[in-house]
């Protein structure tokens, strides 16, 4: 039986070859299938984005060409110059920036202490407060739009940044408190206790120990609150009537009414206006998903 090993080796080699082939086949199916399906899904999801990009570099004539063209023959950058110099896009973006920054600051001033208390301290009413936050997270701002409008009118805050800063703050407060609390809870209590033993006051322990250690949560919260304020529509639509106080979303919305025909300008302005938030959003998307699932995803 001198040839025994050799006869055994052939089927073994064949089997190994089959396995390798099937692995290769599997990988091809996985990748090919993954790519093909992704292409279809992205095609659907990004179709309107393509429309925005394509329209933003068309001339007025190409915007109203029948049948519509996919990509303009001669790409024009003129629209971006025009919206920046002839239309108040700059003002709208500046207003949204101020409101977003103001909302973020006010929100953190309220949410950091509240989140810390919920995460670290035992007190009567803690469960009730958590439930209140959960219910507010589900709350429809439009339900209280009328009394909020009256409050802003009574305070003479209509057409001011304050009206939007405080309303945006209160409607992002539940999420940010919840988010920060989950990060504070993840800090080992021993670290803070050590700081307290070393003579830190509780205030210092929060400022110098808890906040730096919860930095990723704080950053995510900042970005989330900023984006929400930047994207907000219905309060800005109701509380603001002077052109120079309009935010980006309402400013662009009024484009439709005033310059109904100029879609190339509207799309160019939309592109400029959304670029910063899309980039910010991509940075924190993973943290946001975890936070929004409120712990349903560990």
């Amino acid at each position: 039986m001198a040839h025994g090993p050799a006869t055994l080796a052939v089927p073994l080699r064949e089997a190994a070859g089959r396995r390798a082939r099937s692995r290769l086949w599997r990988a091809l199916v996985l990748h090919g299938g993954g790519w093909a399906l992704s292409a279809v899904a992205l095609g659907v999801l990004l179709f309107p984005i393509f429309v925005m990009l394509s329209t933003s570099v068309k001339t007025l004539n190409e915007v109203y060409q029948v049948p519509p063209v996919w990509v303009p023959a001669a790409v024009t950058w003129r629209n971006f110059v025009d919206i920046w110099t002839k239309y108040p896009l700059r003002t709208y973006m500046l207003n949204s920036l101020i409101i977003g920054a103001g909302t973020t600051c006010l929100n953190l001033l309220a949410a950091i202490p509240a989140g810390y208390a919920v995460a670290r301290l035992r007190f009567r009413g803690r469960q009730a407060f958590m439930l209140l936050l959960l219910l507010i997270q589900m709350f429809s701002p439009i339900v209280v739009l009328i009394p909020l409008f009256k409050i802003m009118a009574a305070l003479h805050w209509l057409d001011t940044y304050w009206s939007l800063i405080v309303t945006n703050t209160v409607f992002t407060l539940a999420f940010s408190t919840w988010m920060l609390a989950s990060y504070f809870r993840a800090i080992p209590a021993e670290i803070e206790e050590a700081a307290l033993v070393d003579g830190c006051s509780r205030r210092q322990a929060i400022l110098r120990v808890a906040i730096p250690l919860a930095a990723p949560g704080v950053v995510t919260t900042i970005i989330y609150v900023f984006i929400t304020a930047w994207n907000e529509f219905v309060f800005a639509l109701t509380f603001i009537s002077r052109t120079e106080m309009r935010t980006l979303t309402v400013g662009l919305y009024t484009f439709i009414g005033r310059w109904a025909v100029q879609w190339h300008y509207l799309m160019a302005a939309a592109l400029v206006g959304v670029l910063p938030v899309v980039i910010l959003f991509m940075l924190v998307e993973r943290h946001l998903v975890r936070g929004l699932a409120l712990g349903a995803v560990k």
Binding site: A41, L42, M52, V277
Partner: peptide, 23 residues
């Protein structure tokens, strides 16, 4: 793919609505 998927979520609702209205 995942990163590009985020875009519709990140856009302000009113701006998405305007883009679609034109589409």
């Amino acid at each position: 793919v995942r990163l590009l998927t985020v875009i519709p979520w990140a856009l302000p609702y009113p701006i998405s609505a305007m883009i679609w209205q034109w589409t």
